[in-house]
């Protein structure tokens, strides 16, 4: 594991939106019931499409920062552990709270 400040990341999906973050702590607030739902499955599907991999048990993906983002530290060098942090279907409204971490915020719209 690399230091948190270099490995945190987030991703966001719309239609289904997801923020993902990259700390060692659990970052989602999905309840066990939710994790069994179709929605959770779709988050996994979306994360896999966005990052190319997703560990359903750990609820994480592994990714590197894109090299072209030169202002970001260690772009293209260090791997980040990315966790879903925020998601919303396009009809959703209101705030979504979530847990740890991530200076780096990514987003995908599906």
């Amino acid at each position: 594991m690399v230091p948190l400040r270099t490995k945190c990341s987030s991703a966001l999906l719309a239609a289904v939106l997801i923020f993902a973050s990259g700390c060692h702590k659990q970052s989602t607030e999905l309840s066990p019931e939710q994790s069994e739902t179709k929605e959770a499955f779709e988050i996994a599907q979306a994360m896999k499409m966005f990052y190319g991999n997703y560990d359903v048990k750990k609820q994480t993906s592994v990714a590197s920062l894109p090299k072209e983002k030169s202002s970001f530290p260690a772009a293209g060098e260090e791997q980040m552990t990315v966790r879903p942090l925020f998601h919303a279907f396009s009809g959703d409204a209101g705030a979504h709270n979530f847990l740890p971490c991530a200076p780096t915020i990514g987003m995908a719209v599906f």
């Binding site: 990341s9 894109p66 983002k69 991530a102 780096t104 915020i105 987003m107 995908a108």
Partner: peptide, 15 residues
């Protein structure tokens, strides 16, 4: 649409 690194946010390792 997607961008893996849109911005930084949060502090102390937290989002």
């Amino acid at each position: 649409a997607s961008n893996r690194a849109v911005t930084f946010a949060g502090e102390w390792g937290r989002p």
